[in-house]
Design a protein around this nucleic acid. Structure first.
Length: 811
RNA sequence: GCGGGCGUAGCCGAACUGGCAUAGGCGCCGGACUUAGGAUCCGGUGGGUUCACACCCGAUGUGGGUUCGAAUCCCACCGCCCGCACCA
């Protein structure tokens, strides 16, 4: 018998799949399509075990769907723009393009060694002009539709390095990751995508995504953060010309308003204090708060700081005059930047009221046993004139109506979601295709001038502005409108823009005339299965959904949701932390490939635990899956087939095979790969037990075939090899995934459990179709039951034929 | 604070609809084959009684409840993880 030489076998099959283009999908087939997508990776260099889990799952599905007769498209590409390559360049002097392309080459080799197969004809890389040309084109489409907008916004600024920092570069307590200086906010003109225009649709359509994890949908829901209430205008007492708008989710509590609070950045603050005795202290306070880092400012534990600004506002519901404060706990970026404060029903207002000796009026009756401070629960309205006695929801409705009738305010909706700031003051990204002209202002680059190429530079050290700003031949250009001298935009786009549409490029990866062809999009979209890490549950998935909706509105794609089904796999941890290069706890796959082979390594990734859960890497785990493969190799090849008559053992073996096929198929369909592998191991044990005491028959050969096929998606090299060695043609011809025969999965005899008072006292072998009466009689006939009854009559007998009978003594 | 999840052997885990708890694997122990084994194979692996067959008992974070019957459902508590977090 040939020994199992995993190294030679794996190399041979990897060569064949590539040269025969086995998994390059044929579009001109009448097979149903299956778009199997994994989140395209950032080319970080070497793959480690933490990455392999994802690739193993995706590859399993590619192969499984192919075996099930689908035209399966499994593309691969690279999220190849981004900060790490640029930071490495700053340190090593190697150009990001060079290091990135080298890493891509490296990762392709490693994917191949895992036996992961893709349709490489569709490969895309975000940093290539062929790709980012269309990223730029999409930017222009967004711009045309008013969805890309230039606004002033604060950026993270390191005063020491004189540079803008990305959020990821602001670490711990708001300090620069390089020099440790406290980061400050600085205003810059920057580009935004108006994702908030789509907030409602992004929220509402989550409901359709019933093949997404509940958890991810909830996270997106919270992130969008829709809240409903009312907004109304409040006048400054004695100043008919001055007023401000407030937003509240609890208009029903308006009679409990005892003060109002403006955000420090609120324009009215300066206006109200100018020329008064409050001017100096208030403006000094405001300056202090604004200088604080965002992290400090938004810290919940911090005491609320604020002060009276010397003016009063009129509560429109009862005409009462209340003091106006400025305080750090009110944010200019949410709602209107001003609130009505109702300490009786809001804990933050309560804390502030206590601190400053302000009145507290309850407008909802708390329950008798309530001993907290602000009461947020439901209850009858009190101290609220026409609302008194109404429960919260009704009072809220009534007050909104009243505000609208009086023309004071209106129903209002607010979102936590903010517009997407896409400008990055960085080199290694997609240039924003815009020109600034002294005469024509902001001028988009015409489509026929795309791509705006990223110039090759050799000095990308940050120097107070985007590195591109130092490249004169890039910056100095002509205005596309008037032909006069103009300057190019020197910021690049957030890499999340690149990844918001790559799955559309895959369907038509080499189109030089369009981002993608509508017919091809219609053919392949939506993605049937998307697989990736849960760390992308919010941003990437939300942005990709947003893009798809915009493109749908532009009639460029025919679906509103890009990903029909989503699977998020857990992380691999080691020493209590996520496996990652920066944590220094990575395990390289190569020694495992060398010693056990890719198949055993893959099987262990599938087996180590529920795919959604985090899993601890255990070095010895691969031992088990390696033994399993070795044993099956021997069982499959070791003996000659005889033409002995079939026996009961053969029938039983075949039935076990069919039950295993059912279990493995169902487990794969529900992403329970660990139990699918366990079922195969169990089945392997059965095969060995059989082979050790029976000469093999045609039935046994069939049983081996089933195992080989089921291993096809999981341990593909050894499966293909055995398939060939046992005298078959290509494993992927036709639709080779085995079907189970329902009749063969039926058990004729089963073990019936007999309990006395809920404890198992006996087990009997019975016909699977035993009647309740017979089951009851069988149980009562048991000697063991008789012992426990001790001559008495059972009080009750519960029969669940054929599995169980429970005899209740009642004693 | 709000939202979501989890807790089963020495370890990873299985148990789908309330019905034999602990499948499968790792590790460990013993044995076989061997010059040798970190290869392979066989057996064992909660506790107790027993030469053995077998029998008994305990156990799913803790306490209570529902039920003939609970890892599973309900209540309270303890512990851990994830997301959001002064969002009005």
């Amino acid at each position: 018998m040939a020994p199992y030489d995993h190294e030679a076998i794996e190399r041979r099959w990897q060569d064949r799949w590539e040269t025969e283009r086995t998994f390059y999908v044929d579009e001109a087939t009448d097979k149903p399509k299956f778009y199997n997508l994994q989140m395209y990776p950032y080319p970080s260099g070497d793959l480690h075990m933490g990455h392999l889990r994802n690739y193993t799952y995706t590859d399993l599905l590619t192969r499984y769907r192919t075996m099930r007769g689908y035209a399966t498209m499994a593309p691969m590409g690279w999220d190849s723009f981004g900060l790490p390559a640029e930071n490495a360049a700053i340190q090593t002097g190697v150009h990001p393009r060079e290091s990135t392309e080298q890493r891509i080459g490296n990762m392709k080799v490693q994917l191949r060694r895992l036996g992961a197969v893709y349709d490489w004809d569709r490969e895309v890389a975000a940093h290539t002009p062929e790709y980012y040309r269309w990223t730029q084109w999409l930017f222009l489409q967004f711009h045309d539709r008013g969805l890309a907008e230039r606004r002033n916004a604060p950026v993270n600024w390191c005063p020491k390095d004189q540079t803008v920092l990305a959020n990821e570069q602001v670490v711990d307590d708001g300090v620069c990751e390089r020099c440790g200086t406290t980061v400050v906010k600085r205003d810059l003109e920057q580009w935004f995508f108006k994702i908030t225009d789509y907030a409602d649709r992004l929220l509402d359509d989550l409901e359709q995504l019933d093949e997404w994890p509940e958890r991810v949908r909830t996270m997106q829901e919270n992130w969008i953060g829709r809240s409903e209430g009312a907004s109304f205008r409040m006048h400054v007492a004695g100043r008919e010309d001055l007023s401000f708008e407030v937003y509240t989710t609890r208009p029903d509590t308006s009679f409990g308003m005892t003060f109002a609070v403006l955000a420090p950045e609120h324009p009215l603050v300066e206006e109200l204090v100018t020329g008064t005795e409050y001017e100096r202290p208030v403006l000094s306070f405001v300056a202090d708060v604004v200088r604080e880092s965002e992290i400090e400012r938004l810290s919940v534990d911090k005491d609320k700081q604020g002060m009276f600004i010397g003016a009063h506002a009129v509560n429109p519901v009862n005409g009462r005059e209340i003091p106006i404060y400025v305080a750090d706990y009110v944010l200019m970026t949410y709602g209107t930047g001003a609130i009505m404060a109702v300490p009786g029903q809001d804990q933050r207002d309560w804390d502030f009221a206590k601190e400053h000796g302000l009145d507290i009026i309850r407008t909802v009756e708390p329950p008798d046993d309530f001993d907290g401070e602000a009461y947020l629960g439901d209850g009858p309205a009190i101290n609220s004139e026409f609302l008194d006695g109404l429960p919260m929801a009704e009072a809220k409705e009534r007050m909104i109506q009243w505000l609208e009738e009086q023309g004071i305010g209106e129903r209002a909706v607010q979102y936590r979601l903010r517009d997407w700031l896409i400008s990055r003051q960085r080199y290694w990204g997609c240039p924003i295709p815009v020109v600034y002209c002294p005469d024509d202002g902001v001028v988009p680059v015409p489509e026929d001038q795309l791509p705006v190429r990223l110039p090759h530079i050799s000095d990308w050290r940050p120097a107070g502005e985007s590195p591109l700003a130092t490249v004169e031949e890039f910056v100095d250009t002509e205005c596309p409108a008037c032909g006069g001298p103009a300057r190019r935009e020197t910021d690049t786009m957030d890499t999340f823009v690149d990844s918001s549409w790559y799955f559309l490029r895959y369907v038509d990866a080499h189109n030089a005339d369009a981002a993608f062809d509508r017919d091809k999009v219609d053919h392949w979209m939506p993605v049937d299965q998307y697989i990736g890490g849960v760390e992308h549950a919010i941003l990437h998935l939300l942005y990709a959904r947003f893009f798809t909706k915009v493109l749908y509105d532009m009639d460029l794609v025919g679906v509103e949701e890009p990903f029909a089904a989503l699977f998020t796999q857990g992380m691999i941890t080691r020493d209590g932390a996520k496996m990652s290069k920066s944590k220094g706890n990575v395990v390289a796959p190569d020694p495992y490939y060398d010693r056990y082979g890719a198949d055993a390594t893959r099987l262990y990734h599938l087996f180590m635990g529920p795919p959604t859960d985090d899993a601890v890497w255990i070095d010895d785990g691969v031992e088990g899956t390696s033994r399993f493969i070795n044993r099956f190799w021997r069982v499959a090849l070791e003996t000659e087939t005889t033409d002995r008559d079939e026996t009961d053992a053969d029938v039983e073996l075949l039935k076990t095979a069919h039950r295993t096929i059912r279990k493995v198929t169902e487990d794969i369909e529900r992403f329970s790969f660990n139990t699918a592998v366990a079922a195969l191991m169990e089945y392997g044990n059965e095969l060995r037990a059989y082979a050790s005491d029976e000469p093999r028959t045609a039935t046994f050969d069939r049983a081996v075939e089933y195992m080989t096929l089921m291993l096809g998606p999981m341990a593909p090299h050894v499966a293909h090899e055995l398939w060939e060695r046992t005298g078959h043609d290509s494993m992927l011809a036709q639709e080779p995934w085995p079907e189970w025969d329902p009749e063969m999965t039926v058990r004729e005899r089963v073990t019936m459990v007999i309990q006395v008072d809920g404890k198992v006292r006996d087990r009997v072998d019975v016909d699977a179709d035993i009647t309740d009466d017979d089951a009851r009689a069988t149980a009562l006939a048991s000697e063991r039951v008789a012992d426990y009854l001790d001559g008495g009559e059972p009080a009750r007998v519960i029969v669940r034929a054929p599995k169980l009978v429970n005899v209740v003594t009642g004693g």
